[in-house]
């Protein structure tokens, strides 16, 4: 899965902000904010990843157990899916 084209991540005054551009600005009328670990997952999803890859990524950077990271990744992904921001692989 990966983030749809048309979302730009910028860090402004220490805040990680995602803004839709082009057609996505019409489809998604708003902005997103991320914390540091959310930014890590977002950047991994720009390149494309899966649940396992994202879980591993969290465990590489942070001191966290796999089950905790896994469930947190699921919650994060679920929120993006709800707003139709992800492209799912077939």
């Amino acid at each position: 899965m990966k983030i749809k084209e048309g979302y730009v991540l910028r860090t402004v005054a220490g805040e990680h902000i995602v803004v839709p551009i082009g057609n996505e600005a019409v489809n998604f009328n708003g902005i997103l904010t991320l914390n540091n670990s959310g930014k890590l997952l977002w950047e991994a999803l720009i390149a494309g990843s899966d649940i396992k890859g994202l879980t591993t990524k969290l465990m590489e950077i942070f001191v966290v157990e796999e089950t905790v990271a896994y469930h947190d990744v699921l919650a994060f992904i679920s929120k993006l899916r709800t707003h139709n921001i992800l492209i799912e692989n077939d």
Partner: peptide
């Protein structure tokens, strides 16, 4: 293995806040 543990950061749950503009 211990060094690897020390190099990692204190965990923060990944959060995304979605702010939708109203018409």
């Amino acid at each position: 293995m211990k060094k690897e543990q020390e190099d990692r950061l204190i965990y923060e749950k990944p959060e995304v806040e979605i702010i939708e503009f109203q018409l």
